[in-house]
Simulated assay, not measured.
Amino acid sequence: MRTSARHKRLKLKSEINVVPYIDVMLVLLIIFMVATPMLNANVDVNLPQANAKSLQDKKDPVIVSVGTDGSLYLTMDGAKKEPVDAATMKAKVGAFVKANPEISVLVAGDREGKYDGVYQVLADLQQAGVAKVGLMSQPQGSSTPDGRK
């Protein structure tokens, strides 16, 4: 009888005591708060350099070249560069793209030219109805036709 009375008095608790876990959590919080600013100080990052792959297109692209002085040149169907003004360029490229929507349109800007000329050509091409425009560049390490790198 004594053993059964003892079992009735000592009931098992089915609750978890979380007080020690809260103490550990607060200590870890303080450690991370102190250590985090030290991790971010003077981080040197060396980013990898990559060479972009050239586009493989079945047809010759339409190339709009912007000269140093802002002059425009148009190359269509692999023909020679022809000097054009902005209105003629918009009309010719717009008609060419409407006839063949899959054709690539590329803009080549001179290294010494102003960004404003390239930006204006991009705006004109958008008004002409060109949906996608690529920017041309010289592959890394190759020289231009006049011998510059």
Rank of each mutant, 00 (worst) to 15 (best):
10 L>D: 09
26 L>W: 02
81 K>I: 07
6 R>L: 13
134 G>I: 00
108 A>C: 15
137 S>I: 09
15 E>R: 12
31 I>V: 13
146 D>W: 00
114 K>S: 13
27 V>G: 05
58 K>D: 15
43 V>G: 09
72 L>C: 09
115 Y>P: 03
137 S>E: 06
45 V>N: 07
61 P>G: 02
33 M>Q: 08
73 Y>K: 09
33 M>D: 03
97 V>D: 02
147 G>I: 01
5 A>H: 11
116 D>L: 13
42 N>W: 14
94 G>V: 06
91 A>R: 11
133 V>C: 10
22 I>G: 00
130 V>L: 10
106 L>S: 08
72 L>I: 09
113 G>K: 06
147 G>A: 03
130 V>H: 08
110 D>P: 01
62 V>E: 02
144 T>C: 00
146 D>S: 07
124 D>I: 05
148 R>N: 01
15 E>N: 14
99 A>G: 06
107 V>G: 09
11 K>P: 09
135 L>S: 04
121 V>N: 10
57 D>H: 05
90 K>N: 01
41 A>N: 03
17 N>V: 04
67 G>R: 06
44 D>H: 06
71 S>M: 06
104 S>M: 14
57 D>M: 13
96 F>D: 03
50 A>H: 06
95 A>I: 10
7 H>E: 14
28 L>C: 01
116 D>W: 07
111 R>M: 06
13 K>I: 01
34 V>H: 06
31 I>P: 06
146 D>F: 00
74 L>H: 02
141 G>C: 11
85 D>R: 13
49 Q>G: 03
124 D>T: 02
114 K>R: 14
29 L>T: 03
38 M>H: 09
101 P>I: 11
125 L>A: 01
96 F>Y: 10
83 P>A: 14
124 D>C: 00
66 V>N: 05
26 L>C: 01
137 S>C: 01
102 E>N: 11
24 V>E: 05
115 Y>K: 15
7 H>Y: 01
42 N>S: 06
88 T>N: 04
119 Y>R: 13
67 G>H: 05
87 A>K: 11
116 D>R: 10
61 P>T: 05
34 V>T: 10
16 I>N: 13
79 A>Q: 11
43 V>S: 15
46 N>E: 03
123 A>H: 11
74 L>C: 12
123 A>G: 02
46 N>Q: 12
83 P>W: 07
21 Y>T: 10
28 L>A: 07
6 R>K: 15
77 D>W: 12
102 E>C: 02
89 M>T: 04
139 P>A: 12
4 S>N: 15
32 F>Y: 13
58 K>L: 09
111 R>G: 02
141 G>F: 00
45 V>T: 07
88 T>M: 10
106 L>M: 15
109 G>H: 11
102 E>W: 02
94 G>P: 09
66 V>Q: 03
131 A>E: 12
4 S>F: 07
131 A>L: 15
21 Y>F: 03
2 R>E: 11
86 A>S: 04
96 F>A: 09
72 L>F: 08
139 P>I: 10
95 A>M: 13
79 A>W: 12
59 K>D: 03
107 V>T: 14
100 N>L: 07
111 R>V: 00
56 Q>F: 04
91 A>Q: 06
67 G>L: 15
138 Q>R: 11
92 K>S: 14
72 L>G: 00
25 M>S: 07
29 L>D: 04
148 R>K: 12
30 I>P: 00
3 T>A: 12
46 N>L: 06
100 N>V: 12
